[in-house]
């Protein structure tokens, strides 16, 4: 329990977000374009961080489906900033050894003629430490 809360506080610190302000209205999940891709929807995310359930989130593929499009941040009536929380969990996970989501060796198979390098730079920034 203590470790869980330490991890949660780390996520809150890195994100600079404030999940306790959440009033459980579901506006974030109503706005999320990736809702159907996610095991844990944004509102669930926020609640899990409040209750220290970080490891479950780190194990979930949900964190790689967030687009950082900020629709949830823009529309949240409580200023909770769910997208920043998702990012913080992704960062906490990827800062561990061997937890990169994307490997440079995967790239040749993915890359096509048209792909802008910006997409590759972004993907590495998002999914690799």
């Amino acid at each position: 329990m203590k470790k869980d809360m330490e991890l949660a506080n780390e996520v809150i610190r890195i994100s600079g977000a404030n999940p306790i302000r959440c009033m459980k209205c579901g506006k974030c999940s109503a706005s999320c374009p990736s809702f159907n891709e996610m095991e844990y929807a944004p509102h669930k995310f926020v609640d899990m961080v409040v209750h220290g359930r970080i490891e479950e989130l780190m194990e979930s593929k949900s964190i790689f489906h967030c687009l950082s499009c900020f629709a949830c941040v823009e529309r949240c009536p409580r200023g909770v900033e769910p997208a920043k929380i998702v990012e913080a969990i992704r960062v906490v996970k990827q800062r561990q050894i061997g937890e990169n989501y994307l490997d440079a060796n995967d790239i040749p198979a993915i890359v096509d003629e048209q792909i802008p390098q910006q997409a590759l730079v972004s993907a590495f920034r998002k999914f690799k430490k």
Binding site: K24, C25, G26, K27, S29, A30, H43
Partner: peptide, 22 residues
């Protein structure tokens, strides 16, 4: 329905509410 609405938009001649059903 318990939940908030994220977006209201027009499609196929009516309004569509994209919303949470919590």
């Amino acid at each position: 329905i318990k939940g908030q609405v994220g977006k209201v938009y027009e499609s196929d001649g009516h309004l569509v509410l994209q919303a949470s059903d919590l």
